[in-house]
Design a protein around this nucleic acid. Sequence first.
DNA 1: CCGTACCATGCAAGCGCTTGCATAATACAC
DNA 2: GTGTATTATGCAAGCGCTTGCATGGTACGG
Lengths: 357, 357
Amino acid sequence: MIEVPAREESKRLHKNAADLKTLALELGLSQSTVSRALRAHPGIPATTRQRVVAAAEAAGYRPNARARSLAIGRAETIALSFPLERLQLPETNFVDVLAGISTAVTRRNYSLLLSPFQGDEAAVLRKLASSKSVDGVIITRPLVEDPRIGLLNQLRLPFVVHGRSEVKEAYSFVDTDNDNAFERLTGLLLDYGHRHIVAINGLAQFRYVAARAASFRRAFAARGLTPLPDAIEFVSMTEATGYETALRRLDDPQRPTAFICGSVFQARGVYRALGERGLKVGVDMSVVCHDDGVRGCSAADFVPPLTATATSIRSAGEQLALILIDLIEQNAPEPVHEILPFELVLRDSVALAQPQR
Amino acid sequence: MIEVPAREESKRLHKNAADLKTLALELGLSQSTVSRALRAHPGIPATTRQRVVAAAEAAGYRPNARARSLAIGRAETIALSFPLERLQLPETNFVDVLAGISTAVTRRNYSLLLSPFQGDEAAVLRKLASSKSVDGVIITRPLVEDPRIGLLNQLRLPFVVHGRSEVKEAYSFVDTDNDNAFERLTGLLLDYGHRHIVAINGLAQFRYVAARAASFRRAFAARGLTPLPDAIEFVSMTEATGYETALRRLDDPQRPTAFICGSVFQARGVYRALGERGLKVGVDMSVVCHDDGVRGCSAADFVPPLTATATSIRSAGEQLALILIDLIEQNAPEPVHEILPFELVLRDSVALAQPQR
DNA sequence: CCGTACCATGCAAGCGCTTGCATAATACAC
DNA sequence: GTGTATTATGCAAGCGCTTGCATGGTACGG
């Protein structure tokens, strides 16, 4: 029996036991037992566990995360690596992914470290790996041949990619079904009789852009048709480029009858251009879009409402985090590949193609 | 002289020295010296330092952040506590703050932990404090009487508030100059002859909302006028509420001649409502807005462009992080109060009030 | 050549937690 | 009553770094 001095007793009331040691002392137990009790290790009888848990709660004790992570060799933290610009532009997709990641990370009792970079992402990844500040990392926007995949494999830092790359190495990813979404949108316009369709796509370096371009052509091919050689525009995903591109194509003597946009932002720009040229969406011109936008900047709020393929970017974020944590905890020995479905939401932005003008 | 076995030598080439110990061994120095050299402590001669730094770089060595933070008692990490919804809605302000925080945190060689909550923020803050995962926290959207301030002071967790509260306790904050911005906008409309102005404000529980309401009245008072009793609407900061509120006020027999909005989102809703009622902004009706929006959803892109007060939310974020880190590192013993200026950008959304209808 | 400085480096004790192994205590079988 | 399982708990060695203090070595003035 250990004599607990009265001082200790009063201490318990006054200050939160910040310490495993103090807590153990107060309970008259060893640190090991207390530690194991808190983690519900087998071999600790329920009565002891309850006593310990109650005391910990009363004292407001929580294990020091730094010490714990040093001891167990894991930080129970993952990082999201991203170019800082994705926070500067109104990249709602990114924010949506972030929301999904946050949710899942919290649910699994992990923490999320934000790791923005400007310029040299590889250096940041190297630093994350060698300083062991996180157990794994999520990377986004893979290039067609993305060097980060090789690097991370070599650094042995668990990672998951949002999107796919064409590299031969093994890696886990979560991606939306771009391939079929763009094909579906294109098919829709073709079935409405449109032939001169302009696809406002993203920048060619990204894999998903290539995938979308291919899907576009596939939809034509499936109907025994061929798009015009300059049907696809490879530009950035902003309102401004959507606007400029649309304007340029509208002023072309060969004016298209429909636009497919890669994002709501581009679509917003297209709407603006059409407005300026006095063309009514869904009457004089058809517009569709991949990416439904997020609440408040949503395709549904366009005037007229925009027909679009919607995917839950948020759940992509959740999957990314969950898969990464599984990878870290070895629950998933094999690389995981997940392709999320999309949904086509018909609204009022598509008209039957004019017979001929 | 220590005999370094050949194996060690080859090891150096093959695998990155993950360890202070190994690195020290390779250099024939003690851990202390290597550690101090890397941190550029005084007392380590330059030649030694260079040798050590070179070896560390060659080996790709970076101190284990977990061990370091345990040893120094700091995590060199701060958290941003926020309600998860702020990532779900297109809260561009929030993202802008986040961008600013990210930038500053990175610049100071700290890390940023994202700490979203749903429901009980106090519990999350308590956990952050007791598990010592971060050295400090940024909180946002203070209430008029915000209990978090007392809590954090009591937990002795350094913190900075984005915005102000009315609590008596000491705390550091960064805020925009809401007080004067709303007054300026109101004054502008009054000077254009408007008298029946509706202010679409935020929810009353937030301190900045109260501040804006007061400024609104102050502008009237400064001209010997009084706003109508129901001039101020306390609603949420979304497009939908902007729309609904505007519609309701437009259909009121006492139709206002001008609207002031608390955010671009509300303003977007107002524009939509006006469109539906066939009213032309800047001709039949005047609209101004506090908050310039961010690129791509900016007041400048409205049709017609929206007159607004602009503040750099991003630099608010930077200040928040910098101040917090100073607080943590004791560079700022006193609470810091920073009020950021705004700028009034005149565009085309304001007309002279009709003589009388 | 000695004493005092000062310089360059090392020793070892933490930081607070986890965990393999050991140990005391109890239960059970015979 | 003895031997063996089983149970409940403790010991102590880390995890990899920092840092106060100690130490051996060199420089320098007298």
